[in-house]
Amino acid sequence: MKNMRSVFVAAMLLALLSSCSSLGVKPWDRDILARKSMQLNTEPNLTAFHEHIYFSKEGSSGGRTYDGGGCGCN
């Protein structure tokens, strides 16, 4: 739990840092970010297959999305 808390605090600090004004781009500089390949989930079906396999075969779940699974495989 203690470890988890420190990771969370570190992560939140990083998030705060990330909102510094030096980060980010102007609206007209989004050409690269707009590419299909730059989206966070380019192929949702492949992501879902991965999550289903790992959820069924490993002790962890969640992270990218919620930790539930909806199947009796774990």
């Binding site: 998030a15 990330s18 909102s19 980060l23 980010g24 781009v25 500089d29 989004r30 050409d31 690269i32 970010l33 730059m38 966070l40």
Partner: peptide
């Protein structure tokens, strides 16, 4: 989610 630079999300 944060846009870090023109090339980094």
């Amino acid at each position: 989610t944060q846009v870090m630079t023109r090339r980094w999300l």
